[in-house]
Simulated assay, not measured.
Amino acid sequence: EREREVSQLMLGGSSTKEIARRLAISIETVRAHKKHLYAKLGVSSQSELFSLFWQARR
C-alpha cells in the first residue's frame, strides 16, 4: 500500500523529501520504498518509472 502511495506521489512530481513530509515517514523509508518499487517493476530510475507509466496509458 505504501509503495503505491509513494509511486503516485512520485508520478505527481513530488520529491523524496516532499513524499516523506506528506506521508510522515523518514526520507530513508521513502528511498527504501522506491528501491522496492523499482525492483518489482524492473526499472532503475524515476525516469524509467515515468516511461513505464506513460506506456501503460496508451
Rank of each mutant, 00 (worst) to 15 (best):
R22Y: 08
L49Q: 01
K34W: 02
V30M: 02
E48W: 05
Y38W: 07
R31H: 06
R58G: 06
L37P: 01
G13Y: 12
K35I: 05
R58V: 09
T16W: 01
I25W: 04
I25T: 08
A39I: 06
Q46M: 11
L49M: 11
S44Q: 14
R58K: 14
G42I: 03
G12R: 15
Q46R: 10
A56W: 08
Q55F: 05
R2F: 10
S44D: 13
K40F: 02
A20Q: 03
A32S: 11
K35W: 06
I25E: 01
Q8P: 00
I27Y: 09
K35L: 10
S45C: 07
V43K: 04
T29E: 13
F50I: 08
G13Q: 10
L49P: 01
F50T: 06
R22N: 13
S51N: 13
E3C: 06
H33S: 08
R2T: 06
L11G: 06
G13H: 14
K40I: 01
K40T: 09
A56Y: 11
R21F: 11
S51I: 08
S7P: 05
E28V: 08
R21A: 13
F50V: 12
S44N: 15
S47E: 15
G13W: 11
R4M: 09
K34P: 01
I27S: 07
S15G: 08
R31E: 08
S7E: 15
H33F: 11
Q8C: 03
A32R: 14
K35A: 13
T16H: 04
A20C: 06
L23I: 11
Y38A: 03
H36S: 13
S15L: 08
S14P: 02
I19Q: 01
I25P: 00
S47R: 14
E5K: 15
S51Y: 11
T16M: 06
V30C: 00
E1V: 08
I19F: 02
M10P: 00
I27K: 15
G42T: 01
I25K: 02
L41P: 04
Q46G: 09
Q8A: 10
L49F: 02
E18H: 10
A24D: 15
Q55L: 07
M10Y: 05
E18W: 04
E5D: 13
L23R: 10
I19L: 12
R31F: 06
E5I: 10
R2H: 10
S14C: 15
H33T: 04
Y38E: 09
Q8H: 08
K40R: 15
S7L: 14
K35G: 02
H33K: 03
G13K: 10
E18G: 07
L23H: 01
V6R: 03
E5C: 11
E18Y: 08
G42A: 03
R21M: 09
I19C: 09
V30I: 02
L9A: 06
G42S: 14
S45I: 03
F50C: 12
S7C: 14
I27E: 13
A32K: 12
L23V: 05
E18D: 14
